[in-house]
Write a protein that binds this DNA or RNA. Structure first.
Lengths: 143, 143
DNA sequence: TATTGTTATACTCTATAACTATA
DNA sequence: TATAGTTATAGAGTATAACAATA
């Protein structure tokens, strides 16, 4: 029976990362429900491009979910007048998802909400916040 | 029409944090489904203490959800023999949630899975990984 | 009366499989 | 034949409200 190896720095970082993330997700989820949006709807809104219409399948890819889910999510967004299914020139099978004016506005609110730093991050001194930002920037670039 | 203020470091860090987190959640969710666990079930398993039995209400608090949800989540865990509802001495209204041996084992697997660093973090140089861990440690302590 | 946990209900989200209309 | 999107179905997760047993 040997002692377990100490967890790597990345491993331990991920545990903390996860803990902060779960708490924040719950908080953001509640705020989104207050806007009448489910989490998936909000995420979809965030993924849609205000400039460039997007096929349903492309949205499914960005949401990491099956195409059949997107039908329902877009149904609900469309029912609220946030998104429109427009015809796509060139291939009549494809629906071009287009944000309405109201959609663009609510999208900005959603992004604002989801970018609100969790209490743990907000409480950090500015030096740490900047260091955190720089490290995460590098991490995302490395993908 | 004035230019928007540049986002604070914490704000920008949170955006990156969120992006990495969403991708990782999808990946972890798939792996958990492979173990026959929903995300909430896995999270519940993680929150239960192998040493100390816990009332349903305490679990609801840790999951940030209504007590009525916990009934269903624990039903499913109990059906798989991972958790037991035991009597609590002193207040017969309370159920003492106790992990079975199988529950303790699967809990360890789940924690391992959820602590697996996302590709973005894994790709960072060791210095950055350590710095990230240290900053997040400070952040969690500040709560 | 108040609290713990459950039930009933309704909605969102999810995956799978079968279907349609285009290509 | 293959692809884009939908429908049908079944299950998990969520919140609200009403309820039973116990305190």
């Amino acid at each position: 029976m040997k002692a377990p190896a100490p967890p790597s720095a990345a491993h331990e970082a991920q545990k903390l990362f996860f803990e902060i993330g779960m708490t924040q997700r719950a908080k953001v989820g509640t705020a989104l429900n207050g806007l009448g949006l489910g989490f998936a709807q909000a995420h979809a809104l965030r993924m849609l491009d205000p400039e460039e219409p997007m096929p349903m399948s492309a949205l499914a890819d960005r949401l990491f979910c099956d195409a059949s889910n997107v039908t329902g999510i877009v149904d609900r967004l469309e029912a609220r007048g946030l998104v429109e299914r427009r015809a796509y020139e060139g291939d009549r099978r494809v629906k071009a998802l287009t944000l309405t004016e109201a959609g663009v506005e609510l999208r900005a609110t959603v992004i604002e909400l989801m970018s609100e730093p969790p209490a743990a991050i907000a409480a950090l001194p500015a030096v740490d916040q900047r260091a955190l930002r720089d490290i995460l920037r590098r991490a995302v670039e490395l993908l």
